[in-house]
């Protein structure tokens, strides 16, 4: 609040909805508002439709003799996944390594910067355009340059993932940190809370739902960037397998690799879904 001399007239509560009404964001993210099966019948319906869709594709491919290079049969993709898993595993580990390292660095810096920057209104206004620039520019575009600078190892990928994740986490977290509820801060202050206590006990928990959303979206962006970077850079990693299999027209293996990438993405999503349900369900 450096240089801020304006005061706020304590009228903040008047605009709020009646107690008991939903407060804050109606939902902490559209991504977390996924309808799930309510009972066994709905579950059977969902599974049944999935079997029908996959079986339908299998049937169409077989009946119309769709060439392998146009679209392989689901059974072929599944077989390729099982048969090639041993050769894919080191690539999975490579992708996961660059993804997790880049993600951890990017997310940590993103949350930290969001926490600091939202406390300095002027600095926030200066920095935000650059953050938006970083969010909207696909970081894969930087990979050729990063490869030139950092070589063909994990480093350019880690940097690219960090650059993709950091701004995304930051921009969402900042939205969370900006949601200051003067009454709750006043409550803490009335018990003599320090600035640090207000941050850890009020501002951070209030921002947490948005931070989790940022981590979730950032994770998806990070995966995108790490696989994309591998496609450009070569060497090891799931991205390199995609290029390799498609160049050999091994479509079953190609789609099996895509399936692996999708599974990584879905696991990240499910992880943050569970984290959100545990730590941010008060908002929903």
């Amino acid at each position: 609040m450096a240089g801020q001399t304006f005061e706020q007239i304590p009228e903040f509560n008047k605009k709020q909805a009646a107690p008991g009404a939903k407060e804050g964001l109606s939902n902490w993210s559209a991504l977390t508002n996924v309808p799930t099966a309510r009972n066994f019948r709905e579950f059977l319906l969902i599974v049944g439709v999935a079997i029908l869709v996959i079986g339908g594709i299998e049937l169409i491919v077989r009946v119309f003799k769709v060439p392998n290079y146009v679209f392989p049969a689901p059974s072929g993709i599944f077989n390729a996944l099982i048969n090639n898993f041993d050769t894919l595993l080191p690539h999975i580990l490579t992708t996961m390594t660059s993804l997790l390292i880049g993600y951890a660095i990017g997310a940590a810096i993103g949350i930290l910067m969001a926490g600091v920057i939202t406390q300095m209104p002027v600095a926030e206004k200066v920095i935000t355009p650059y953050i938006i620039l970083l969010v909207t520019t696909p970081m894969i575009a930087l990979v050729p340059l990063l490869v030139l600078r950092l070589g063909f190892g994990l480093e350019p990928r880690i940097v690219a993932v960090g650059l993709a994740v950091g701004p995304m986490v930051m921009i969402n977290s900042a939205t969370g940190f900006r949601r200051t509820d003067q009454a709750k801060i006043a409550l803490a202050r009335s018990y003599g809370a320090s600035t640090l206590q207000i941050f850890t006990q009020i501002r951070f928990p209030m921002a947490l739902p948005m931070i989790i959303v940022g981590l979730m979206v950032g994770g998806i962006f990070g995966l995108l960037t790490s696989v994309g970077a591998e496609m450009v850079g070569g060497g090891q990693g799931l991205g390199t397998r995609l290029v390799y299999y498609s160049s050999l027209a091994r479509m079953e293996s190609f789609f099996a690799t895509i399936l692996v990438v999708a599974l990584i993405g879905i696991s990240m999503y499910v992880f943050f879904y569970i984290v959100g349900k545990r730590w941010a369900s008060w908002e929903a």
Binding site: N13, L187, G192, Q201
Partner: peptide, 25 residues
């Protein structure tokens, strides 16, 4: 101090809300 409306911290259970001042102090 008692505020307009209840001013409960929605991420804390009722007991943890009651214990909030103890934690701060």
């Amino acid at each position: 101090m008692i505020f307009q409306e209840a001013n409960m911290l929605p991420w804390r259970s009722i007991m943890k809300n009651v214990l909030f001042p103890f934690q701060i102090k």
